[in-house]
């Protein structure tokens, strides 16, 4: 029931319960890395919002995860600028080095990979996010050493 108390702490910052839904979903996601049906139910109960409504909102946004994910989420951009600067080679490298497919998770549950459509870093392409950390100017060597920093 700890999530619920944390969520209730957020309630007073918003004019109504529905307003607190997005932060509440973040709180729930942080606990398990993704939003299970049970997590959505907990949010629904904490905010006293209908379960179906909570699920509708949670599935709308890309930043909420509907499936279990690895401990660290790699969000790699392959849009125009990043593609020109070799992002697709990086995708292949992740597959070779970690067995990580786009949309997949490594067998040891360490990393999940999501291909992004532009993360707004075209001037420093190719770029990725690992969890909430921003990593620009990637090369094959650099990406490996960065990822080794995440256990």
């Amino acid at each position: 029931m700890k999530i619920q108390e944390e969520i209730k702490g957020y309630l007073e910052r918003y004019p109504d319960r529905r307003g607190a839904l997005l932060p509440a979903l973040y709180i729930a996601q942080r606990k398990a890395g993704w939003l299970s049906q049970e997590a959505l139910e907990a949010v629904s109960e904490a905010l006293d919002l209908p379960k179906a409504t909570v699920r509708g909102v949670a599935t709308f946004y890309a930043m909420y995860r509907q499936r279990p994910m690895g401990r660290h989420l790699i969000q790699l951009c392959t849009n125009v600028a990043c593609m020109i600067f070799g992002a697709e080679r990086l995708v292949d490298l992740l597959k070779e080095r970690y067995g990580l497919e786009p949309g997949g998770t490594t067998d040891d549950g360490r990393f999940s990979l999501v291909i992004m459509e532009c993360i707004g870093a075209c001037d420093r392409a190719p770029a990725m996010l690992v969890d909430t950390d921003f990593h620009p100017g990637l090369t094959e060597e650099k990406i490996e050493s960065i990822l080794e920093g995440y256990e």
């Binding site: 209908p50 379960k51 179906a52 409504t53 699920r55 509708g56 599935t59 709308f60 946004y61 890309a62």
Partner: peptide, 9 residues
Amino acid sequence: AYAISVSGR
């Protein structure tokens, strides 16, 4: 009843 909603995008 709030039983259904649009899910996904």
